[in-house]
Write a protein that binds this DNA or RNA. Structure first.
Lengths: 344, 344
DNA sequence: TTAATATGCACAATCGATTGTGCAAAGGGG
DNA sequence: CCCCTTTGCACAATCGATTGTGCATATTAA
């Protein structure tokens, strides 16, 4: 007897099968029998009917009535990027534990698209929103926050005190990485930066500058190149820096994709790592240890990044109030492998 | 004048602001003015009111009434795996183009979890479902299909004629990879397999056997080891094979994670690639070209995998009928790099 | 035996939209 | 000038659940 009903089983059918009213059926199934004085006989017969009919309540209807969708929205610049994918995963898992579902969307690193996606998600009555912003504009996000929709920013934040934000400690990471290069004797260091004007990029640059300042060494602004966190930018910036400044002995890539581009450029220019060129990167990567020169990198704790963000959001939804601490910095870890050579 | 209303703007408010009834407002905003003989004066005043109030219709209410949620469900074994993340991305983008949103969930490679997630998604009244099955059980999926919920399987399918499935041509890929090893002179080849009893694994094994048979060479079953597509399985299987069969000159890893494990094991056993050991892997990877020995691999077309699946699903939803062709095989590509050494 | 309380459940409103139908007022033909 | 058609819009049901309230019947107390 295979049942191939297309149509959903509704509460009404369950109620009829059990010979009770809609309201009684609803209460019997949602554990409110006692509170509404439904006899346990009735309660059980409703439950039996529900089981027999394989009743599964429409979350759509429930959400409309209760004004609670148990839906979370998420906007990422690129789902396929392992870094964001890992964050998405943690968030999805924490959400699942709390009976939330997650609508995951991809802004394609485009601020316009990001805004549209945010609006679409709002139209779906999400209860909370997690965004890894492209990082250029933020009016649409402050607007969301003003309208009291719980919001958490991850990875890329803004210099905005009221927005709940979870980021890695970009500055400390960049400082540590730069310090390592300087202590290894490097004096001319090329910086492959990501998207300018974003907070992570600015903070990483600040970290670099701090490390230089601490050692009383000058940082030449022309050693900085790049305009995106992607492979192409890394490739072009590395090519430019290495040809314009042959004296460069080390590169600091601001993302693992930038590092990939640098590897490609270095290969084409005949410079092998670490012998002819040292390389350090922000963002660890599963394969980093197996590269021709195992890549020394600043490891972001993506798991923690995602979990903290998810918890902050869900807490906000449950309590209805903003967390006291708005800015959360997750420590990073320097993975010292073998892509840096001591010189001098 | 910053408006910080928490409450949603509803159609009712728009109707009142424009001085018309709910039904008129609805029709004026959904382009049905002409069909229902709403004067263009009225139409415009409603639209103006909607704009002024920043009205955005509740998709929840609309969905309940129209029985169309514009929601897709997706279940992946591991969102953080770049392979699945890339598929997810393509699907999300195609969905977006067609005004669908996607609920993405993570089964954690667990068949039980997968079934639960499928049920949860159904409760949300999704209009279609894409699953990359863990691959062990399929009753819950055939049941879905029987109930006429559009369903597409990606990557891992089942030997089930009625389920719409999009997979890489595992068999041809494995055959090509094996053929390459054999033609390079390797005769003792270790196979690092993935999850046994799954279709991709079975098909890849079949491809391996075909290649051996074509060259009239015997394949010793004890050369096959491994029980998962993850790094640990690759590590353990490689360790086992290399110690039990020191005569092995080449490994064929059935996933890039298996390959990572193999790299680790080989490193610990002091065998360098490709000099002391050749390696080929299923699944390309962004970093594969930069490994110590640039990894020769069978490249799956993840973009195509995702796009074809998404289109098949949406087509199914729109037309209401199953596609004529149910089994779709996406060609794979052999990326010949430098992890294989010719011998003999 | 009667009034007061407790028990058990149904009625109906509601969430926010969509849509079939009905009823006025305006316009046109004879 | 009257009847009929068209124009323009409102009323009310509906999707599938949740929930406040009200009304019987059963039980207990006096």
């Amino acid at each position: 007897m295979s049942q191939s009903t297309n149509r959903q089983v509704t509460l009404k059918q369950v109620a009829e099968a059990a010979g009770v009213s809609l309201s009684t059926a609803s209460r019997a199934l949602s554990g409110k029998a006692e509170a509404y004085r439904i006899s346990s006989t009735t309660e059980k017969s409703v439950q039996a009917a529900a089981k027999k009919l394989q009743f599964s309540p429409s979350l759509l209807a429930r959400s409309l009535r209760s004004q609670r969708t148990k839906l979370l929205g998420m906007v990422l610049p690129n789902i396929a990027n392992p870094f964001f994918a890992a964050i998405a995963r943690e968030i999805a898992l924490v959400a699942e534990e709390n009976a939330f579902s997650v609508l995951i969307t991809d802004s394609q690193e485009n601020s316009e698209t990001e805004m549209q996606l945010v609006e679409q998600l709002r139209a779906r009555q999400i209860e909370g929103l997690i965004v890894c912003p492209v990082g250029i504009h933020n009016q649409h996000l402050t607007k969301i926050a003003k309208q009291k929709l719980p919001l958490v920013l991850v990875d890329r934040g803004f210099d905005h005190k009221d927005l709940v934000t979870v980021t890695s400690d970009h500055r400390a990471g960049a400082r540590a990485a730069t310090k390592l290069l300087l202590e290894s004797g490097h004096r001319t260091i090329g910086i492959l930066q990501g998207l300018p004007d974003t907070l992570p990029n600015a903070e990483r640059l600040a970290g670099v500058r701090e490390a230089f300042a601490q050692q009383n060494i000058a940082l030449d602004p022309t050693w900085i190149a790049g305009n995106h966190f992607d492979e192409t930018s890394g490739y072009q910036a590395a090519g430019k820096l290495l040809s314009e400044h042959p004296e460069i002995t080390a590169l600091f890539a601001f993302s693992n994709q930038n590092a990939m581009g640098a590897l490609r450029a270095a290969g084409e220019l005949g410079r092998t790592i670490p012998d002819d060129l040292s390389l350090i990167a922000f963002d660890d990567h599963p394969f980093a240890a197996y590269l021709a020169a195992p890549l020394t990198s600043v490891n972001q704790d993506v798991g923690q990044l995602g979990r903290v963000a998810a918890r902050l959001l869900i807490e906000q939804i449950k309590t209805g109030v903003l967390p006291e601490v708005k800015q959360h910095r997750i420590p990073v870890q320097l993975m010292n492998r073998a892509s840096i050579m001591k010189i001098g």
